[in-house]
Design a binder for these strands. Structure first.
Lengths: 166, 166
DNA sequence: ATTCATGCAAAATCTTTGCACTGAT
DNA sequence: ATCAGTGCAAAGATTTTGCATGAAT
């Protein structure tokens, strides 16, 4: 982990930015919650635990900076907030997401599934692909399993019979 | 076009909603600007031309309703606003987008390029895919062509020689 | 009459900005 | 002394909500 912080530090220096204590605390929070998709507010609250004096505006400014440097990706799943997702080191593509429409869980796919598709796009649409965003909406494996066990007992439930409230 | 409006009307009625004049005006604007990716504000301004008394809140409520009915898709390209994109009739998948990072143009791909990829996701991640969002970021064919003609004259420019300001 | 939808304005959210101040060269 | 970076509060922007009014059965 120290290694990754150091490399981010170098990236900052290369562009004449400093790794201030506030920025470092923010980066650490992102590294420690790599699996999650934190909003700016989420990051702020977590950073506050280590560095209580930090301001929300600084968090926003840091996240913007990290987005510029492509250390994180700013994503949007359709609720009103932007979320920030650390890039895997050496990843030249943005990983994909599986959003469960039942429980809201967001899982990640690291593999690049789009190699062939990108070739098609470059050839057929004459479009130079630099990056991509791919999100699937559907039902996650956990919810699917839950349904299977429920269905053992529910196979002849009739919702039409629901009692109307008077 | 009248046919499409009628079908949308039926979809509304099926869910006990009415096609009020305001809703109809909103739908017409969407149909007339099918190629674009209008924000709520954009829609509001266009609807106002036909029905000047309409309120912005009604436009928001109508767009929300149409999103629920899957007549439109609510999308987000990362600027702060939601955009609304009419679904092609009969399309069971959401079309893809090509966003140019130079000129900002957004082109659409109607073809479904993800059939194989979705099968992989369902098998390998045990995830039931219901819908997807795919956006490529890169350089569109217009900008690429512009570069090619510029490069005829620019092939030996050296940016390192830029003069520093004192 | 009742119910659904509307317009307006106010409120709520999320994000950005202005400004005075601090801390490191 | 300079200058990037910070915290705070205010402003901005987008979207949602409360409520009185209006239209349609």
């Amino acid at each position: 982990m120290e290694g990754r912080i150091n490399r981010i530090k170098k990236q900052l220096h290369a562009q004449k930015y400093k790794l201030t204590p506030q920025r470092e605390a923010t980066v650490r929070v992102l590294l420690e919650n790599e699996e999650d998709h934190l909003s700016a507010e989420d990051v702020y609250l977590l950073v506050k635990e280590k560095a209580p004096e930090i301001g929300l505006a600084t968090v926003y400014r840091t996240l913007e900076l990290l987005t510029e440097l492509k250390v994180v990706d700013k994503i949007n799943f359709g609720d009103g907030v932007s979320r920030y997702d650390l890039r895997k080191e050496g990843a030249n593509h943005f990983h994909h997401h599986l959003v469960c429409i039942e429980c809201g869980a967001v899982d990640e796919i690291q593999e690049d599934l789009l190699g062939e598709v990108e070739k098609v796009v470059e050839r057929r649409w004459h479009f130079k692909v630099m990056d991509h965003r791919l999100t699937f909406h559907g039902i996650c494996h956990r919810c699917l399993e839950k349904h299977e066990s429920e269905n053992k007992n529910d196979s002849n439930v009739h919702y039409e019979h629901e009692v109307e409230k008077v």
